[in-house]
Design a protein around this nucleic acid. Structure first.
Length: 822
DNA sequence: ATCGAGCGGGG
DNA sequence: GTGTACGCTCGAT
């Protein structure tokens, strides 16, 4: 039979012959959920001999490899001698085919030890990724399969096809993929976070196209027909699984579901002794790295928080990335305002109030669904560009995206992609520093009418126009080579040279991206098209990350010389713009790498936009500056001349709609006391909204006075820290560990995950010696709260507007204020 | 100065 | 899973 479908998820299994077979899950054009199994693909990798002459000898030796380990056979099935390129130079390599993906790491170790071998290449690409690239199958775009229907009772799909042949349909068409969003609510004690071992899941919501459901296990009177009651948590879990499989979405969307919901569901399933099998497999939490990932076989689980945080945060510039904040920014819609830590109370009380939490639960899923509708097209465009499955694209960082795109592109250039750097290389790269982007530090202070411009394609266009690439870097200057601006390296002035004889691998990849984007943008000028907008976004995302990639310590195509040359050109271009602005009497207050902040002063918005348009006409092709936003007021706290590497960039801006954007102030964290967080927030508000520095100053002095006189309620003095492991496992005893021990002695429940609340009391010694349970505390250490909490949160702000730290603490220093106001 | 530990997101 | 894992800040030592 012959079938067209949109593949969404890819994995592999080992069949009865001991061979790997690819499983492609997806949706047919007629809307059925299907699985295509393709056993016609073999793993392979390359080795490069020390010299050309011994290549046949090496090939012979490799052909004979075969061994058994733990009763698994690892065999070289075939070898070929092939011509490849490394940084544009031709090499001969042995292409080694093996019987199974797991044979690759085994056999590569063996072959690497041969005397004839220079190095191993391309032995670390995932089998499924290799398949997508070699067979030219980008997921989510239409595929045609020729094959036979087979029966697979373990798979929750409508059809399973064993593929004979599979190929991409070149004509793009919009997909018909189904989205379902979900969210759980967990029994929570007041002012605490839930603990897996103790607190059950009380409800779960699911939201799709014309589909809404909340499952909960405590009955109450309700006329909401989306609420479904079950008897207990175990049934809730089973109902969740069944609802999911019945709806059978292609994408299952959540918000921080990798880090919270799925690990929680998994843990509670174990406690309730229920197994949630989907497509013959349980939910897998990959916990090996720092951040867990939750995988459901055959359904693409996307934690959109990851994509927002890793990829979109740079352009969103929000001060936190909670569902509420992000929804408000993107959808202009907020969460229902309910305290999540009171669920436990309401649940125990029972009755109609639980309904409010059902609505709250559903709203979270709905917001997540709506965010996915906005974001998914961009993820899908990246999937088609980079040839990585949506599951991985959603969780990738910028550098991984760029690297994956380069690996995919390497095939078109017959390039062998480089190996990853080893540990020692990584650590030596980490300590390397060099001149970065140009930073124009402002004089600290309060500014009005601020325009922010971004110099977006600055670095990618430099890469293209000056052919900057590890493959074009020359040891000496030659005729017609590109010469970088002067760079200071280890106190010596140097320049780098890049050949113009041929186009480098990376510049031509980036040029292709920029050309495609230019074409799309001109189409977009005629007609608005959400798909093209997403494509443009995807192209921009990759292009803008190239510079950072050259300088990233883990990069395969790392090049300090390239990175330095790019920033050197960048400094040249951005300082030229700054100089032109100043010639036009436009006041530049701040600039960092690729953004420029100016104040309008008496200039009209038209004047400034005209200036920007003029700059864009003069800039080389692809380069342009765009208006990022306008801010009526902003406060900058760094000093001009304080331009050393890594200097913290701190500023706060208020936009026309009254929202405050904060950069570089770190007090949104849980482990600061409320008094510190509140004071900082208030100070920024008074300065930015009320424009009253005087008032802000006196506000802080009052707070400090009140702390000294012990007039602050002790609730505001509480510091919260989470216990991450059992108390006996700690080597380093911090204040929260001491308190946890005390709580255990008192017979209170404390375990990994508990939030420990404490107050720092008067006394001698370390902070931990002074830490005390809030209910036992009679007073608090004023000095600690003033000097370690409140002042660090606000002192730089006041320095920016002309005060010193001591002005805040010393008795009566109104003089300074008067001086400043003159 | 170095190192362990927690934060974020989630409830 | 043909694999690797964040970047920063504070307190203790």
């Amino acid at each position: 039979m012959n079938l067209q479908f949109f593949p969404t998820d890819i994995t592999y299994e080992t069949n009865v012959q001991g061979k790997a077979a690819i499983l492609l899950f997806g949706r047919s054009l007629s809307g059925e959920k299907i699985c295509v199994i393709d056993a016609n693909f073999e793993p392979y990798f390359y080795t490069i001999p020390k010299s050309k002459e011994i290549i046949s000898q090496l090939q012979e030796k490799i052909n004979r490899i075969s061994y058994v380990h733990d009763s698994i056979r690892y065999v070289v099935t075939k070898t070929e001698i092939v011509k490849k390129k490394i940084l544009r130079k031709e090499v001969e390599a042995v292409k080694i085919f093996v019987n199974h993906p797991s044979a690759v790491p085994e056999l590569k170790r063996e072959i690497r030890s041969f005397d004839e071998v220079q190095e191993i290449r391309e032995a670390d690409i995932l089998f499924v990724r290799r398949y997508c690239i070699d067979k030219d199958i980008p997921l989510t775009s239409p595929i045609e399969v020729e094959g036979d229907l087979i029966s697979r009772t373990d798979l929750d799909v409508e059809q399973v096809i064993k593929a004979k042949e599979i190929k991409k349909i070149p004509k793009p068409s919009p997909n018909n993929l189904k989205i379902l969003a979900f969210d759980i609510e967990v029994y929570t004690q007041e002012k605490q976070y839930p603990i897996e071992k103790r607190d059950p899941i009380v409800m779960v919501s699911l939201y799709g196209n014309n589909f809404e459901k909340v499952i909960t296990w405590k009955k109450f009177e309700t006329d909401k027909d989306y609420i479904e009651f079950v008897d207990n948590e175990a049934e809730l879990l089973i109902k969740f699984r069944d609802t999911l499989v019945n709806y059978n979405p292609d994408y299952l969307i959540g918000y921080f579901t990798d880090g919270f919901d799925f690990p929680y569901i998994k843990a509670r399933s174990k406690i309730n002794n229920v197994s949630l099998i989907i497509n013959g497999s349980s939910i897998k939490i990959n916990n090996k790295g720092i951040e867990p990932q939750a995988r459901v076989k055959g359904i693409v689980h996307l934690d959109i928080f990851k994509f927002i945080k890793n990829i979109m945060a740079g352009s969103l510039r929000l001060d936190n990335y909670s569902l509420n904040t992000v929804s408000y920014e993107i959808l202009k819609e907020r969460k229902i305002d309910l305290r999540a830590d009171l669920i436990g109370l309401v649940w125990d009380l029972g009755g109609k109030d639980i309904e409010k939490y059902c609505e709250y639960n559903l709203k979270d899923s709905m917001l997540t669904y709506k965010l996915a509708e906005k974001i998914l097209p961009s993820i899908e465009e990246l999937v088609k560009l980079v040839y990585i499955p949506p599951f991985d694209i959603c969780r990738m960082s910028y550098s991984q995206l760029v690297e994956s795109y380069l690996i995919k592109s390497a095939k078109d250039f017959n390039e062998l992609y480089p190996n990853k750097p080893d540990r020692s290389t990584v650590s030596s790269r980490k300590i390397q520093t060099y001149q970065g982007g140009y930073v124009f530090n402002p004089n600290p202070g309060l500014y009005e009418n601020i325009f922010v411009f971004d110099f977006l394609s600055l670095y990618p266009s430099i890469v293209v126009s000056h052919n900057i690439c590890p493959s074009t870097l020359q040891s000496d200057k030659t005729q017609n080579s590109h010469e970088s601006p002067e760079i200071i390296e280890n106190n010596v002035k140097v320049r780098y040279y890049f050949t113009s004889e041929y186009e480098g691998f990376i510049p031509s990849v980036i040029k292709d991206i920029l050309l495609k984007r230019t074409k799309i943008k001109s189409l977009l000028k005629q007609n608005r098209d959400p798909v093209l907008e997403s494509r443009s976004y995807a192209l921009k995302t990759i292009a803008n990350a190239t510079y950072g990639y050259f300088a990233f310590f883990g990069a395969r195509w790392y090049s300090k010389e390239c990175a330095m040359s790019i920033t050197a050109y960048g400094r040249k271009y951005i300082t030229e713009v700054i100089e032109k602005a100043q010639k036009n009497l436009i006041n530049v207050i701040y600039s960092d790498t690729d953004s420029i902040f100016i104040t309008a002063d008496s200039k009209s918005k038209e004047f400034i936009m005209d200036f920007v348009n003029q700059i864009n006409l003069e800039l080389p092709s692809f380069m342009e500056i765009e208006l990022e936003n306008f801010y009526p007021r902003g406060i900058f706290v760094m000093k001009r001349g304080e331009n050393e590497e890594g200097a913290k960039k701190k500023y706060a801006l208020i936009s026309e709609d009254g929202r405050i954007k904060v950069r570089g102030f770190e007090t949104i964290r849980r482990d600061w006391s409320y008094i510190a967080k509140e004071t900082q927030k208030k100070v920024l508000e008074i300065i930015l909204i009320e424009k009253d520095i005087d008032k802000a100053f006196n506000y802080v002095r009052d707070i400090i006075e009140n702390i000294k006189n012990k007039n602050i309620p002790k609730d505001l003095m509480v510091i919260r820290t989470q216990l991450k492991k059992s108390v006996e496992d700690y080597d380093l005893i911090g204040p929260h560990v001491v308190i946890a021990k005390k709580m255990l002695e008192k017979g209170m429940f404390v375990g990994p995950g508990s939030i420990i609340h404490y107050i720092v009391e008067d006394g001698k010694g370390l902070v931990r010696d002074k830490a005390i349970l809030p209910e036992d505390s009679k007073s608090y250490d004023s000095k600690y709260y003033i000097e370690n909490q409140v002042l660090p949160a606000v002192d730089r702000i006041f320095e920016a507007v002309g005060y010193e730290k001591k002005d805040l603490t010393e008795e009566k220093s109104q003089l300074k204020l008067k001086e400043f106001l003159k």
